[in-house]
C-alpha cells in the first residue's frame, strides 16, 4: 500500500460511518450505501486537495448526490419518519434512563412539526458535532443562514417543549407511570 492509499484508507476508516449515517437519515439503506461509496470515490480523486477537516466536504458531496437522485427510491422522507423507521426498544430504554422532561414520542411529535432544514441544522450540530461554519458548508448556505436555522429550530423546539411542560401534567403523569431505570450518581 502506497502513501496515497494509506491516507485514503485512513480517511475512509475515520469517516465512512458518519457519511453513511448522514445518508441513512435521508434515504433508504440501498441508496444511502451507494451514495456513501460514490462520495468516497470522489474523495479518492480529490485526495490531494481535500480540506484539512474533510468531514463537512464529504457530507456536502453526499448531500449534493442525494439531492440529484431523482428516482423513485429517493422520494422525500421526513427525518422524523427515518428516525421512527430506525427506532428500536433499546432507544426507548436509553431515553428512559436519560430522564428527559417528555417522553420520546412527544419529542418526536414536536420535531415532526419543524421544517426539515431546521432539523438538518440541529442534526449536523448535535449528531455530527459540526461547528456552524462547517455545518453551513454541508448545507450549502452561509454561516449566518445556518445559525438562523439552528436558532429557529432550538427556539421552536424549546417553545413547544415548554408548552408541553407547562400544560403537560398529562405527560408528567405518563412519565411517572413508566418504569424508571436511572441511578443518579
Amino acid at each position: 500500500m502506497d502513501d496515497r492509499q494509506e491516507r485514503f484508507t485512513g480517511l475512509y476508516d475515520r469517516n465512512y460511518r458518519r457519511v453513511l449515517g448522514y445518508a441513512l437519515l435521508r434515504a433508504e439503506p440501498g441508496v444511502a450505501e451507494d451514495v456513501a461509496s460514490e462520495t468516497f470515490l470522489i474523495a479518492w480523486k480529490r485526495l490531494n486537495v481535500l480540506p484539512e477537516h474533510p468531514l463537512p466536504w464529504l457530507l456536502g458531496v453526499a448531500r449534493n448526490m442525494l439531492a440529484k437522485q431523482r428516482d423513485s427510491r429517493c422520494q422525500r422522507q421526513a427525518l422524523v419518519d427515518r428516525i421512527a423507521a430506525l427506532t428500536t426498544a433499546q432507544d426507548h430504554l436509553i431515553w428512559d434512563i436519560a430522564e428527559h422532561v417528555v417522553d420520546r414520542e412527544t419529542a418526536l411529535a414536536v420535531l415532526a412539526a419543524l421544517p426539515e432544514q431546521d432539523l438538518e441544522a440541529m442534526a449536523l450540530a448535535t449528531w455530527h458535532g459540526l461547528p456552524p461554519e462547517q455545518a453551513a458548508a454541508v448545507m450549502g448556505c452561509s454561516t449566518r443562514t445556518y445559525n438562523v436555522r439552528l436558532h429557529r429550530a432550538r427556539k421552536r423546539l424549546g417553545k413547544a417543549l415548554h408548552v408541553e411542560i407547562e400544560e403537560g401534567t398529562a405527560l408528567a403523569h405518563l412519565r411517572t407511570t413508566r418504569p424508571q431505570f436511572s441511578e443518579e450518581t
Binding site: 460511518r17 419529542a107 420535531l111 449528531w127 417543549l161
Partner: peptide, 23 residues
C-alpha cells in the same frame, strides 16, 4: 442545552449498527 441533549438522544442506536455492518 436541554434541547440539544434531547435531540442527541433521539439518534437511533440502530443507525450505528447499520453503519458498522455496512462498513
Amino acid at each position: 442545552d436541554m434541547n440539544d441533549r434531547m435531540f442527541a438522544d433521539l439518534k437511533p442506536m440502530r443507525l450505528d449498527e447499520l453503519t458498522d455492518e455496512a462498513y
